[in-house]
Nucleic acid binder design. Structure first.
Lengths: 196, 196
DNA sequence: TGACTAACCAAACAAATGTTTGGTTTACTA
DNA sequence: TAGTAAACCAAACATTTGTTTGGTTAGTCA
């Protein structure tokens, strides 16, 4: 019984991940509504109805992707920031990690910035909560910066997020800039203005 | 004959604008795909099929909105920037105009930043062209800034656009900031860093 | 008045959508 | 080897979608 469950979990996880990967890729490229269950099924080589053996609905598919995406980007973000001591070095590394997350090949993180919570009313609150979970990292990062007194930390955080988020629209893997270059450039464009 | 056409144009324009206004509002709030022709029809008080007397398709509706939006935002942008002499004052006013455009009540301009060209393959090229038409204004604005030699004008322009664009996601009309405040704050956060 | 047309209605259509249902295969276990 | 359950197929279902078609109304013009 227990052993049987273990085997099931293993098998299920294998196809589960393939499904999540394929769905995430489509969601990141085409968006949520423009991606049909038939698209996803075709990508993993099964029939549309078969997806419902693994996930109860399309909405829940996105929810799972959101969760995986937040876990991944948070891990990447912390790995890039925590080793550094200087807050401005942290900003530089953090923005680089952000731009990387919205442009990298792995689609889980990209979905978070491509698909907005309003598109899935059923899970809107949960999706917002997931986003907040990540954005708290940026909030903390800004909080540690020694800023001029006239700088609004709230607005600065939203500016950082917006600049990074927007990169997904124009970033090209074969382009002139790497995600790292972009993130670090953005942080340089801010530092001397707002720094104390 | 000519007179008849004139009358037709007048009448048609009246309902035409009502349709565009309603469609733009829905597109700006819910997005393109999430808005059905039935939604739009209900908003203007007619049946879905009747829309096709005024516009040949849903895609063409968006195209017309895009055009109107670009004309409006370009006009607003130039009206805000041209009277000013100092390039940095122009940046401040330009970013304020940008944030206003993505958040203001009139929905035409908001649609441009909400609905991406890829969502309407039929008119993708034309939509991109319309966007470029506006973005050229920001390009010119950045071009006039006296910048440090290490500043990449291309990246700076995209950062400005991203920060402004992103405001549509969190701006609240009853919130703590006006569109003007936000835009001017953003420009301040950049100026001293990149200025020569 | 009578013809004409702009503007709309009423109803349907074909296609695509998310999802359900019942059956079938495959592999492991007792 | 018989049985069990995971994993999937095959086919349909109900709904929503953009759109079309033929008819109707109201106002204009000669």
């Amino acid at each position: 019984m227990v052993y049987t469950r273990h085997v099931k979990a293993q098998r299920s996880n294998s196809r589960n991940e393939a499904l999540l990967e394929a769905a995430a890729h489509r969601f990141a490229v085409q968006g949520f509504r423009a991606t049909s269950m038939r698209d996803i099924a075709r990508a993993v080589g099964m029939l549309p109805g078969s997806i419902y053996y693994h996930f109860p609905s399309k909405d829940d598919l996105l929810l799972a992707i959101y969760q995986a995406g937040v876990e991944q980007i948070t891990a990447e973000f912390e790995a890039a920031v925590e080793p550094l001591d200087d807050p401005w070095d942290q900003l530089e590394a953090g923005m680089a990690a952000l731009v990387l997350a919205v442009t990298e090949e792995s689609a889980y993180t990209r979905v978070i910035f491509k698909v907005m919570p309003d598109e899935v009313p059923k899970h809107r609150k949960k999706l917002v909560a997931f986003r907040d979970l990540f954005e708290a990292n940026i909030r903390d990062l800004v909080e540690r910066l020694p800023l001029q007194p006239w700088v609004d930390k709230h607005l600065l955080r939203l500016m950082i997020l917006g600049a990074g988020n927007h990169a997904q629209l124009w970033f090209s893997a074969e382009g002139d800039y790497s995600a790292d270059e972009i993130g670090r450039a953005f942080s340089r464009y801010l530092k001397d203005s707002v720094s104390k």
